[in-house]
Amino acid sequence: MDGYERIIVSCRDTDVLVLLTHFAGQLRGELWMRTGTRQERRYVAVHDIQLTPTMQRNILVYHAVTGCDTVSQPSGHGKKTTWKVFQQHGALLDDLGRGTLSESTIRSVEELFCRIYAPASDETNINDVRYRMFQKGTKDQEKLPPTRKCLEHHIKRAHHQAQVWFQADVPIPKIDTSVWTILCQTNSQT
């Protein structure tokens, strides 16, 4: 912002790449990420990463909800699988990480998880998807989607993480701590 023509961030962390992708539009000039090892360095031209407006708006939330340093990933579904769903249904994440977490936001993210675990289905209830997968012979717990209650906690963690990331450029961020307080109370009771 101070007139630099090129910024190079040296880091090997995917979370940082996602943050740079989100905030790249606020900077003029080139934004690069240097990654790799001393023997094999790579430079990623962050300023050249092209996303649809919906994907650009929700890249931080997508990364948080599908697995990052602080939030687990959906069991059996990595970034490649979930990216395809995000490309088609990214708008389901529009409200996550923004403001107070509402029941309608939780339902939208639940629908995204239904699409991840059952792409051919129009189901929007994760417990129903879980039940149908079990009925069809999926007995391995690792391959079944989480229960609605577990998914709610996952969404709360992702919501909190996204709130922090959305304000990564703010010196004194204002984070809704109500979700974090609930998570801490729940974890101390178990």
Rank of each mutant, 00 (worst) to 15 (best):
Trp32Glu: 15
Leu51Cys: 06
Gly78Asp: 00
Met55Lys: 02
Arg28Tyr: 15
Gln87Ala: 03
Leu27Asp: 13
Gly67Ile: 07
Gln56Arg: 00
Gln73Glu: 09
Gly76Met: 04
Asp48Trp: 14
Leu51Tyr: 05
His22Ala: 02
Cys68Leu: 06
His63Asn: 01
Asp69Leu: 00
Thr37Phe: 08
Asp13Leu: 01
Val46Phe: 08
Thr52Pro: 15
Asn58Glu: 02
Lys79His: 13
His22Ile: 09
Thr54His: 12
Ser72Pro: 15
Thr14Cys: 01
Val61Tyr: 09
Ser72Arg: 12
Gln50Tyr: 14
Tyr43Ser: 10
Val46Arg: 00
Val44Gly: 05
Gln56Gly: 03
Val85Cys: 00
Lys80Ile: 14
Thr70Ala: 10
Leu60Val: 04
Thr14Pro: 02
Val46Tyr: 04
Pro74Leu: 03
Arg57Met: 08
Val85Met: 07
Asn58Tyr: 06
Tyr43Trp: 15
Thr52Phe: 10
Met55Cys: 05
Leu31Phe: 09
Val61Glu: 15
Val18Asn: 03
Gly78Thr: 07
Gln26Lys: 14
Ile59Ser: 03
Gln50Thr: 13
Lys84Ala: 11
Val85Arg: 08
Thr66Asp: 00
Ala64Gly: 05
Val18Ala: 03
His47Tyr: 12
Asp15Lys: 02
Gln56Glu: 08
Leu51Thr: 00
Gln87His: 13
Ser75Asp: 07
Lys79Arg: 10
Phe23Ile: 03
Thr66Asn: 07
Thr54Phe: 14
His77Thr: 00
Tyr43Glu: 14
Pro74Val: 05
Leu27Val: 06
Pro74Ala: 01
His22Asp: 05
Gln56Cys: 01
Thr37Lys: 09
Arg34Gly: 09
Pro74Met: 08
Thr66Pro: 13
His47Thr: 08
Pro53Glu: 10
Phe23Ser: 07
Lys80Leu: 13
Met55Ala: 06
Asp13Pro: 04
Asp69Ala: 06
Thr37Ala: 01
Phe23Arg: 05
Thr52Ile: 12
Tyr43Pro: 15
Leu27Phe: 15
Leu31His: 00
Phe23Asn: 04
Pro74Gly: 02
Lys80Val: 12
Val61Phe: 12
Thr54Pro: 14
Thr35Gly: 03
His63Lys: 02
Ser72Ile: 11
Leu20Val: 06
Arg38Gly: 09
Arg57Trp: 15
Gln26Thr: 10
Met33Glu: 11
Pro74Ser: 03
Thr66Gln: 03
Arg41Trp: 09
Tyr62Ala: 03
Gly29Asn: 07
Cys68Arg: 05
His22Trp: 15
His63Tyr: 14
Phe23Trp: 08
Val16Met: 02
Ser75Leu: 10
Thr52Cys: 06
Asp48Phe: 11
Gly76Ile: 05
His77Phe: 11
Leu31Lys: 01
Gly25Asn: 06
Thr14Gly: 01
Arg41Leu: 11
Leu51Asn: 00
Thr70Glu: 15
Arg42Trp: 13
Val71Arg: 02
Met33Asn: 06
Gln56Thr: 04
Thr81Leu: 13
Lys80Met: 13
Trp32Val: 06
Gln50Met: 12
His22Val: 07
Pro74Gln: 03
His22Lys: 14
His63Ser: 04
Gln87Val: 11
Thr66Ile: 10
Met55Thr: 11
Met55Val: 13
Val44Trp: 05
Arg34Thr: 09
Glu40Thr: 12
Thr35Ile: 01
Ala64Cys: 08
Gln26Arg: 11
Leu60Gly: 06
Ser75Glu: 05
Lys79Asn: 00
Lys79Leu: 04
Thr66Arg: 07
Ala24Gln: 07
